[in-house]
């Protein structure tokens, strides 16, 4: 059975959410991963734990607290009301915020591994050749961490595509706004239209397979470091 217009809309929305989330995460996670890789602060352990929390928490727990926080009585909800923005639950922006938190460890960890693998002598050499800390980061560290960025991008994107629990809690199922592929598949299965559920599901299976193949193929040396979360 071919994909319906609603299915295509859900696919497009999912791709948009994953793209926006991954893009933002690559930028936001960079300083965090750098700090985690190089700092000797005693705050490193608790911060690492917080970053890794979404890995072990049931997504519904994460979604529940996000829903409460972004709701009219929650701190984020009060802030958005005060700023004159609508409440975030059941909006695309709300989904982006949820996805940022949900996929954070999948982007931070490969970047952190890539930064930690950079020989400090090489950064020292750059410093004594006249490169400032920012210059060192941009012209030496970023280039060396390229495989880490590839892994982080692929994993962050794929993981966001696959989210369900968080989405259901804070996004609901508004077509074109918050109804993602995973929700659409759930709805198809609930209404016993298994053929439609299968058509969409196979698209996701193919996507996940291609994404992971690309990752293993393009970054053979990074494989264990980046996927071994």
């Amino acid at each position: 059975m071919p994909l319906s217009l609603e299915d295509v809309t859900a696919l497009w929305l999912t791709a948009k959410l994953a793209g926006v989330t991954t893009g933002l995460l690559l930028v936001l996670a960079t300083p965090l991963a750098w700090w985690l890789a190089r700092s000797r602060s005693r705050w490193r352990a608790p911060v690492s734990a917080i970053v890794a929390l979404p890995l072990v928490l049931p997504p519904t727990v994460l979604g529940f607290y996000l829903l409460v926080a972004m709701g009219p009585a929650g701190p984020v909800g009060k802030l958005t009301t005060w700023l004159g923005i609508d409440l975030l639950p059941f909006t695309f922006s709300g989904l982006v915020i949820g996805s940022l938190i949900y996929s954070l460890p999948f982007v931070v960890q490969p970047l952190r591994n890539a930064f930690a693998a950079i020989d400090p002598d090489i950064l020292d050499a750059a410093a004594t050749l006249g490169a400032s800390p920012l210059d060192r980061f941009c012209s030496v560290a970023l280039r060396l961490a390229r495989p880490g960025y590839l892994a982080a991008g692929v994993l962050g994107f794929a993981h966001t595509v696959g989210e369900f629990g968080v989405v259901l809690m804070i996004g609901g199922s508004i077509p074109g706004e918050t109804r993602l592929v995973s929700v659409q598949i759930y709805d198809h299965a609930e209404s016993l239209s298994f053929a439609s559920a299968h058509a969409l599901s196979i698209v996701l299976v193919m996507f996940a397979f291609i994404a992971l193949s690309a990752l293993y193929w393009l970054g053979p040396r990074q494989r264990t470091a980046s996927v071994g979360l």
Binding site: A125, T128, P133, L144
Partner: peptide, 21 residues
Amino acid sequence: VPPHRRTLAYVSQQGALFPSM
């Protein structure tokens, strides 16, 4: 004074060339 503002150059024993370049 941070290393990049010192008017020197340092060659470490291993050379520390930039491997990506």
